[in-house]
Design a protein around this nucleic acid. Structure first.
Lengths: 345, 345
DNA sequence: GTGAAAGCGCTAACAG
DNA sequence: CTGTTAGCGCTTTCAC
């Protein structure tokens, strides 16, 4: 059952030649080496037959130019993550890497994905032999607990949540939930509600809690909670339609991302209501389309961009071994006021 | 100027201890080894002072369990690429990798980015010591020429374009441009135009050519060409506003992606026109928000999803060394008819 | 035409 | 408490 990985030695033995012959054949250097085409054929055949997979570590070690140092960086994120965030991190990281790359310093950026809540099952995470540094994001609380316990043996910058013992960049706590509530209340909404998905990340529950708390404080009643099954526009539309058809009432909606908000727009319009006059809407996100919805969506931007702008240099400082890297950076996201919350008096 | 990379040997020499002491210190095993805290301190200091960067190839080779084979896969894409496509590839690849991962077979997925048109400057591309296999996409024609010439020394699946000597998955030529034109003509548009960005990928020029050709054939006149500076909604809005303010006329618009279409919506509405009655709009893309624009956007989906579904298994077949992998797969993208092209008769 | 051998950087086992 | 040594898989040079 446990078939050991095949090396060029096994191939060599199998064919009856030397490892060097195999190596040059597989690198297509058999011509310079003047191997007989018969040998070449046999070697190639054996390689596929035995299921040979080259060991890149071996090759790279051998090929290593001692003048260059190579940094392997990774973005560690869950599959279930919103793509725009991962993309932002990726682009910011690549841009930084571009700048830092010199003749003697190279970088590689990888994306490692895990299933939300099952980071601990991810193989190789605790090995110090894969990455020089990592940006970790889109975890669930279970994952955070695991990471806090495990103490990963390489520099880690955690994005969007706080994990003890790690360097973290996160949204100022409460800010998004509170500002969203305030925006709706300032738009004279007396019955604000919140639309979120069933699965709550650390960040989302923070926002949810702050929003409902502020609404409670200022209006004296509970904010309506509309729970969707996912984070796509469709999920938002379905959830809000159900809410309306069960007689639910609201005049202000905080959607925990812009996709849900887009879905909410449709449900609101389909029910004969108008945005913002009947229902004002606030979303979260930096999605490029938010401004192009009809009406343009007011968005508490989510601190993604600002967080990423902090996290990337932080990672490089850690890589350089700087001592004085702060362990927690709080970021205050911008709010983009647009027509979805501008109601006639 | 050329400072060679530091190894643990240099650190050892510098501090006056053995490499093993350095190794265990850097791996935080100095306690088991009962190193004096003084030595540990000196080693740590020397490491940062000399700018030590561990060689992962060395570590991994050493740590290698001979029972496991590791595949390193990469998505090779330009920075300028639309994120959704890269995300689709990434997710599809990760899903496949998840399934294929066993106790004895591990996979790593990386993203390598290059600047569109400058793939040839990307270091290490021609080395056979980084990746077992690659999915290449979002190239410009110059890049394609380079790749065709270079013959990358590992399996490559090319996505969305045809490059000689490589395995390619691409959209059926002409299809998107032709269908978009037909959709507009069927919606009784007499003056269709096309909105695209200045920078043309292989795919986009194909679409542009097919669209204008079909329009010319059926209406006898040239399609209006509206050229934007970028691919974001904003760029589309600006370009179309300029077109209108210069007295341009059209009653049907083909936007080469959904973001441009969203921007176009705004310009159309701002000019007092309505979608679809004054201007019918067709976009390209699989963006989740297309359906949630107002009115919902008719989209020729772009073959992304279908292409990815072909490309990923193809890559694995190549990795397995299968002989019979077809070198070209053509994919026909679905068309989603929505209200942006449903005009009153 | 082909094989033997050295060594890339690292760490675990062993020997003091 | 610390040093020496072997060897992970691979390729390149040298020797035959």
């Amino acid at each position: 059952m446990s078939k050991p990985a095949v090396t060029i030695y096994e191939i060599a033995k199998h064919v009856g030649v030397s490892p060097a012959a195999v190596s040059s054949t597989l690198a297509n250097r058999h011509i310079e080496r003047r191997l007989s085409s018969e040998t070449v054929r046999k070697i190639r055949e054996a390689a596929t037959a035995l299921g040979y997979v080259p060991n890149m570590a071996g090759r790279r070690l051998r090929a290593h130019k001692s003048a260059t140092r190579q940094f392997d960086l990774a973005i560690l994120t869950s599959y279930e993550a919103p793509l725009p965030l991962v993309g932002q991190v990726l682009h910011a990281l690549q841009r930084a890497v571009d700048v830092q790359t010199t003749e003697h310093t190279r970088y590689a950026v990888a994306i490692e994905m895990f299933h939300a809540g099952r980071l601990s099952e991810k193989a190789g995470l605790l090995d110090a032999n894969r990455y020089h540094g990592v940006i970790l994001t889109n975890t669930l609380p279970v994952d955070d607990a695991f990471v806090a316990e495990a103490r990963l043996p390489y520099p880690v910058v955690v994005l969007g949540r706080r994990i003890p013992h790690y360097h973290c960049v996160l949204e100022a706590p409460d800010f998004v939930g509170r500002r969203s509530a305030e925006v709706l209340l300032e738009a004279k909404c007396g019955k604000p509600g919140i639309l979120h998905s069933r699965q709550l990340t650390h960040t989302t529950s923070d926002r949810l809690a702050a929003f409902t708390r502020v609404v409670k404080e200022r209006t004296g009643r509970e904010a309506a909670k509309i729970v969707s099954t996912g984070l796509q526009p469709h999920d938002g539309a379905v959830a809000l339609e159900a809410f309306f058809s069960e007689g639910g009432q609201l005049d202000g909606l905080f959607a925990v991302n812009d996709s849900l908000a887009a879905g909410a727009y449709r449900a609101i319009k389909a029910s004969g209501r108008r945005v913002p006059d009947d229902v004002a809407v606030v979303g979260i996100g930096d999605y490029e389309l938010a401004e192009y919805l009809d009406p343009p969506l007011t968005t508490v931007a989510g601190a993604n961009e600002a967080m990423v702008a902090e996290a990337v240099p932080m990672l490089f400082r850690l890589l350089r071994g700087e001592e004085s890297v702060s362990t927690e950076v709080l970021v205050v996201p911008p709010v983009f006021m647009r027509q979805s919350t501008q109601r006639r008096a």
